[in-house]
Design a protein around this nucleic acid. Sequence first.
DNA 1: GCAATAACTATCAAAAATGGTAGTACCGAA
DNA 2: TTCGGTACTACCATTTTTGATAGTTATTGC
Lengths: 124, 124
Amino acid sequence: MKLNDQEVAVELNGKRYHCAMDITMDYIGGKWKTVVLWYLRNDKKRFGELRKLIPQMTERMLSIQLKQLEEDGLIRREVFTDKPPLKVEYSLTDFGLSLLPVLDAVAKWGRELGQSNGKLVEIN
Amino acid sequence: MKLNDQEVAVELNGKRYHCAMDITMDYIGGKWKTVVLWYLRNDKKRFGELRKLIPQMTERMLSIQLKQLEEDGLIRREVFTDKPPLKVEYSLTDFGLSLLPVLDAVAKWGRELGQSNGKLVEIN
DNA sequence: GCAATAACTATCAAAAATGGTAGTACCGAA
DNA sequence: TTCGGTACTACCATTTTTGATAGTTATTGC
């Protein structure tokens, strides 16, 4: 790709980005990632808990999103096999926590838009 | 769609959203919208200017994004035919301006990630 | 009349994201 | 040894998004 004077290319993990927006959206873009991250913002959550919290999302999508978020280093996955029922907990890493200002801004805007239309928008 | 106790559904313009994140991401999601909005954050820009600023985006995509942003009420489109060369200017509406905190947060995070990897990330 | 500029639009194709459903792996309890 | 709980994974189909390129409209200057 040819770049002109105005352009600045950044390469991270083999991906080439055009600008700062690009980078962030690559991490949180798509239909579900922000939602999952939002539910993890305070506490760790188990797979099944997330399922119940976001019933619109299929198990398949939840699984895919969690895997990608883990690969991106935003969340960590901890497995507990010691005590009988298999337990897997997901939580934000420090890197994931650094996204909080973004998530807050996104949540705030959506909430305000919903409210200004007289609709209730709550979460958690 | 059946909703359980935890869920809150919001309906805006015929679309149903699950939560605040949903709403915002519907407005700014996708590969290009945040980039276009970012370039419009300070001044109005013409179609051709945006093209030059974002050469990776095809005219087709630029056209589609601008149209959607306009339909969503985030930007306005002004046509000037009085003086010879056809001129179309795009700028943020008040509604679009309300997104600035979100755009800032998104830009900041991406910029910092780029910088922490020793890469330069500039825009505009 | 003809080229040039600006702002699109149309067409076709490919890639990416999402959805629905069924099935698997691993335990311990009964 | 079958059963239930938990956390997935496989498979296939569909929808959505994006890309490449050529063509269109309108207008002015030459």
